[in-house]
């Protein structure tokens, strides 16, 4: 008791206590907030860096397959965009280079929403008339550019029909007039779809080959049968039969038909 009373009576050391209080106050009002602030700022920086790393990772994962094919006798273009990655992809612009003139296509209704994985979007664009060389590329919101797999496409009035796809048949033949009957029939993969076309070919062969292009409606497998004419009589059996695949990757396959 007497010790406590003597402590209370003693006035020495008040300055030290005050000094200590100031020291603690300075520590808590300046140094600690400074550390907390620096820590928060560093966290924000790290968070941003991590977000951008994730953004770049997603960007590198983006993958689109772009194909184009000319329709309506070369006056329009169909662009097929297939999302090959596991992320939704937003196409923001399509660039169409016609000869050396650039057309920037934006605000396309078909591309307003994101393209989901493993889905395909089709975009149709009008083209100027005349012969032309076409190149197509698309830009995504993540900053990727995907060029069309079949760039460039050469369009001349003679090589393109009204159908989006075609089969080019090159028949080896002796020089002189020839006559053939070409029958093209859709055989799959869509069951129940029936389509066929018969084309009569009468040509004067000069260089050893006759050529005929047959337009087809859609991609798939087509059976081609060719009959030869001898004089005015069509042979009873086709001398050449083949099944050809028409796809977006190969919209106009070539078929070589040797001599009989």
């Amino acid at each position: 008791m007497s010790r406590i009373r003597s402590l209370r009576r003693s006035k020495s050391g008040v300055g030290s206590v005050l000094g200590m209080i100031f020291l603690v106050a300075i520590a808590f009002t300046t140094i600690v907030p400074l550390f907390l602030y620096v820590n928060n700022t560093n966290n924000l920086y790290n968070k941003t860096a991590e977000e951008m790393r994730e953004f770049d990772r997603e960007r590198s994962l983006e993958s689109l397959a772009v194909f184009m094919y000319v329709i309506n006798n070369g006056s329009a273009l169909n662009i097929q965009i297939k999302n090959k990655c596991a992320l939704n992809v937003q196409v923001v612009r399509i660039w169409i280079m016609v000869n050396e003139t650039c057309y920037m296509v934006t605000g396309i209704p078909e591309l307003e929403s994101e393209i989901e994985p493993a889905t395909t979007r089709m975009v149709a664009c009008a083209l100027p008339s005349g012969n032309k060389v076409l190149k197509v590329k698309v830009a995504t919101s993540r900053g990727n550019i995907f060029v069309a797999e079949n760039n460039p496409v050469y369009v001349t009035g003679e090589t393109w029909g009204w159908e989006p796809f075609s089969i080019n048949i090159c028949m080896e033949a002796d020089n002189g007039w020839i006559r053939r009957t070409v029958f093209v029939e859709y055989v799959g993969p869509v069951e129940g779809m029936k389509w066929n076309n018969t084309v009569e070919v009468t040509q004067l062969v000069v260089g050893g080959y006759a050529y005929q292009s047959v337009g087809v409606k859609c991609d798939g497998y087509y059976k081609i049968q060719i009959w030869e004419w001898v004089g005015k009589i069509k042979q009873p059996k086709p001398y050449f039969t083949i099944v050809v695949s028409v796809s977006l990757e190969m919209p106009s396959p070539w078929v070589f038909v040797p001599k009989r």
């Binding site: 008040v14 100031f22 300075i26 009002t29 140094i31 620096v38």
Partner: peptide
């Protein structure tokens, strides 16, 4: 002594506060 501690302490606190604000 107490007055000195108060004055010096206040000055140090003000300086520290200003410096850390500047550093922040």
């Amino acid at each position: 002594l107490c007055t000195c501690v108060l004055v010096v302490g206040t000055a140090v606190w003000a300086f520290s506060y200003g410096y850390t604000s500047y550093e922040m």
